[in-house]
């Protein structure tokens, strides 16, 4: 495709980026890894006037552990995150999900924040951040605010960011000791966007679920947390989890599209959520 020319500005600070966003409005887009945005531009689906390059900003990169949270700069690449000792030690669910993202090239360039800000409802990492009860830090260069990940995506490719705001950090609470995790997805081909993905974390006590967090991607216009299932799971024996699967029905709002039927998405959701839950239980170690 022939690309309409656009300008590029390599900013030196978040504040500068935010100012450019405010000035140009819809005509400007942020460029982190570019693995969502540049394909869209190449296909003529996005025609910005200005790309604001932020991927290099040191304040937006890196992984640190601080005060019971893991803080991930929004422009940290998937590859860097999946290899980071802090992530490997504490965020196995996220690392596992990243393995399903694209291919080695996408992971070398693409960033966690870029994926979250793109808000494709079938993407793996936004789903995981919802299940982990992460918070998204939005910055306009002067002030920051925290938006729960579960509230961050509002619809297809639409987020809670206000005009002139930049997603700067992802803050993930350290999972409690003994928490088990599970992640399953179905895609046509390994590495493609998920048709449906399921993620779960679980704490167990006396052979039963003590706490569960469960989410799905690809069944609505944003990732969903299955609150009814989470509530019903408490106290359920691991062997009886099957009986809970109807609890997700109200969370499923898939649309028919020419490539995948809504009915199959519903079916997959039930299958994958159970698998994710079972894996999470088998990985959980008993807590007192």
């Amino acid at each position: 495709m022939y690309v309409r020319p656009f300008e590029y500005s390599r900013v030196t600070s978040v504040a500068e980026a935010a100012a450019l966003l405010r000035h140009h409005g819809d005509g400007a887009r942020l460029l982190a890894g570019g693995q969502s945005l540049l394909p869209m531009i190449n296909l003529g689906l996005a025609q910005p006037e200005l790309l604001i390059g932020i991927g290099h900003l040191p304040e937006l990169r890196g992984v640190t552990r601080q005060d019971g949270e893991i803080i991930i700069g929004a422009c940290t690449t998937y590859a860097a995150l999946a290899a980071h000792e802090v992530a490997l030690a504490h965020l196995s669910l996220l690392v596992a999900a990243i393995r399903h993202v694209g291919n080695v090239r996408v992971r070398n360039q693409g960033t966690l924040g870029g994926s979250v800000a793109h808000a494709d409802p079938a993407a793996e990492t936004p789903l995981v951040l919802c299940v982990l009860d992460a918070r998204c830090e939005a910055s306009d260069g002067e002030r920051t605010r925290q938006i729960p990940a579960v509230d961050f995506a509002q619809s297809y490719y639409t987020t809670a960011l206000a005009e002139g705001e930049i997603l700067s950090q992802l803050r993930v609470p350290l999972p409690a000791a003994g928490t088990g995790w599970g992640f399953h997805e179905y895609s046509r081909r390994a590495g493609d966007f998920a048709i449906v993905a399921a993620a779960a974390t679980v704490q167990c006590r006396d052979g039963a679920v003590a706490e569960a967090r469960v989410g799905l991607a690809g069944v609505a216009d944003t990732p969903v947390r299955c609150r009814a299932l989470e509530a019903a799971a408490v106290g359920t024996k691991v062997a009886e989890l099957d009986g809970l699967v109807d609890q997700i029905d109200a969370d499923l709002m898939p649309k028919d599209d020419p490539f995948v039927s809504a009915e199959y998405r519903r079916h997959l959701a039930r299958v994958l959520i159970l698998r994710a839950l079972r894996d999470a239980c088998s990985r959980a170690t008993e807590v007192q």
């Binding site: 081909r189 390994a190 493609d192 490539f259």
Partner: peptide, 16 residues
């Protein structure tokens, strides 16, 4: 014809 890219027209990869 809705099939506009390789993300929609799925040919087998080495892992498939």
């Amino acid at each position: 014809n809705l099939t506009s890219g390789f993300f929609q027209y799925v040919i087998p990869s080495s892992q498939d």
